[in-house]
C-alpha cells in the first residue's frame, strides 16, 4: 500500500518537475508547487528533484530551509496560521496565539501528535482591517477573541 502511494506521489512530483524543466531560476517556484501539493517537502522528493533537475541537494535544502512558506517536516491535516502583523499585534494577536498554544498543547511551529493541527505564526496576512486574524486551511477568521478560539478549532476534524 505504502509503495503504491509512493509511486503515485512520485508521478505527481515528476509532473510538477516537467513544468519547469529547461528553465532557469525556477527552483523556488518548483518547491512552492511541491509544498502546496503535499503540504511539506519530503526528503525523497528532494532527491528526485536533484536528480531530474541536476541541482545539488545541498542547494535545494538551502532554499527549502530559508523560506518560511516551505516545510521540511510533515504537517498536520489542518494548518492554523496566526497573523502576527502589527495591526493584529495591537489588537491582541499575542493573546490569541497563547490561547491556541494552550488549547492545542503545542508551541508555535509544532504539530499535534494526532497530526490534526499544525500551528504557525505568519507576519502578515494582509487582512489588517479584520485583526486579529487566524487562517485555517485557507479560510480566514477575523476579529477573533480568545473565547472564540476553541469554537473555531472544533470546526476542523
Amino acid at each position: 500500500m505504502v509503495e503504491i502511494d509512493m509511486k503515485v506521489k512520485m508521478k505527481r512530483v515528476d509532473e510538477i518537475i516537467e513544468r519547469y524543466k529547461g528553465e532557469e531560476g525556477v527552483l523556488i517556484q518548483l518547491l512552492l508547487d511541491i509544498q502546496s501539493e503535499f503540504n511539506w517537502i519530503p526528503h525523497g522528493v528532494i532527491a528526485r528533484i536533484s536528480e531530474k533537475m541536476r541541482i545539488p541537494t545541498s542547494q535545494i535544502y538551502r532554499i527549502a530551509s530559508f523560506y518560511k512558506a516551505m516545510s521540511l517536516n510533515p504537517v498536520g491535516r489542518h494548518i492554523v496560521q496566526v497573523c502576527m502583523g502589527t495591526a493584529c499585534q495591537v489588537r491582541g494577536a499575542p493573546k490569541i496565539l497563547d490561547r491556541l498554544e494552550a488549547n492545542l498543547k503545542i508551541k508555535e511551529g509544532g504539530t499535534t501528535p494526532d497530526m490534526r493541527f499544525s500551528l504557525k505564526r505568519v507576519n502578515c496576512l494582509g487582512c489588517c482591517a479584520m485583526g486579529p486574524v487566524i487562517e485555517v486551511d485557507g479560510t480566514y477568521h477575523g476579529k477573533v477573541t480568545s473565547a472564540m478560539v476553541q469554537e473555531i478549532l472544533e470546526k476542523y476534524e
Binding site: 502576527m84 502583523g85 502578515c124 494582509g126 487582512c127
Partner: peptide, 11 residues
C-alpha cells in the same frame, strides 16, 4: 512582496 505587516494596499 509587500512584507510590511499592517500594509495591504499593493495586494
Amino acid at each position: 512582496d509587500e512584507g510590511d505587516p499592517g500594509a495591504y494596499m499593493d495586494r
